[in-house]
Design a protein around this nucleic acid. Structure first.
Lengths: 143, 143
DNA sequence: TATTGTTATACTCTATAACTATA
DNA sequence: TATAGTTATAGAGTATAACAATA
């Protein structure tokens, strides 16, 4: 029943706008060869500092073996470093390498540049609405 | 808008809110076993009707062989149907099966239910801001 | 014995190259 | 010859089960 698609509720309008904008922003990246999974790990390390493998796996809601593979790729590319923990030698500390930080910063710069240009096309009133909504929506997502 | 520092901050806030909300909403799904790639195809068929393989691949910005595999899985699960086009027998029409439509509707229902509850916690003024922002942001994402 | 990380194995999604069937 | 779809092959990300090292 295609007619039901015309009935756009407030919630579905927010859902559609969120997914479409996220998809558009995700396309702006410093490196085509970098997967979402890899970038998410780099961004997590940039925002929250070094993690053990287990901590990274939990943050990304992924299994430890899966995270191990992703970290293997990032390490091979020189984006992260792996060092055994001195206090507990079972643990491995995974930290952002300079090349990894550069990727995060450049990707964020590109995404914000795209958004900046898009926002510049709006009226002052619309920009104010978007700015306020960003604060409100972030509160909803993290409550 | 001359203040470029304020502009960057505004863009960053929109970017973070968008990614966090999208991630939170994506977690609400009818079936754990369904991947994002599979669900995106079903949602596209639901919104825009039957597609050829090539059309689906272009819509999802994926190669034809990759889409062929995804469609194979969806067909094996009974979520889509494949029928040879009568007018041009090289083409295959891929359409949403009832079971596939049920998955889309249930996932959308869960996501909107989560969002409705979240929006219900807001003041009327904040809700109005979010509703108006949804329209504005969707315009930006699809321009 | 419990925890941390890794390896073994398998399935999905991604790609490019090459093939078949049809126009 | 050109187009639509599929198959062949390979790499990355996902999982669970099993293992080694360490606490």
């Amino acid at each position: 029943m295609p007619d039901s698609l015309a009935t756009v509720t407030e919630a579905s309008a927010v859902r559609l706008a969120t997914f479409r904008l996220a998809r558009r922003l995700r396309a702006e990246s410093a490196i085509d060869a970098m997967s979402d999974a890899q970038f998410s790990v780099l961004a997590g390390l940039r925002a929250h500092g070094p993690h053990t493998l287990r901590e990274l796996a939990e943050r990304e809601r992924v299994s430890a073996p899966s995270m191990n593979r992703t970290v293997n790729g990032l390490e091979a590319a020189g984006y992260v470093t792996r060092t055994t923990d001195d206090a507990d030698r079972r643990k491995v500390n995974i930290a952002l390498a300079p090349a990894g930080e550069a990727i995060v910063l450049e990707t964020v710069r590109r995404r914000d540049a795209w958004l900046e240009e898009a926002l510049a096309s709006l009226s002052d009133a619309d920009r104010t609405i978007v700015s306020r909504a960003a604060v409100i929506l972030q509160g909803l997502a993290t409550r």
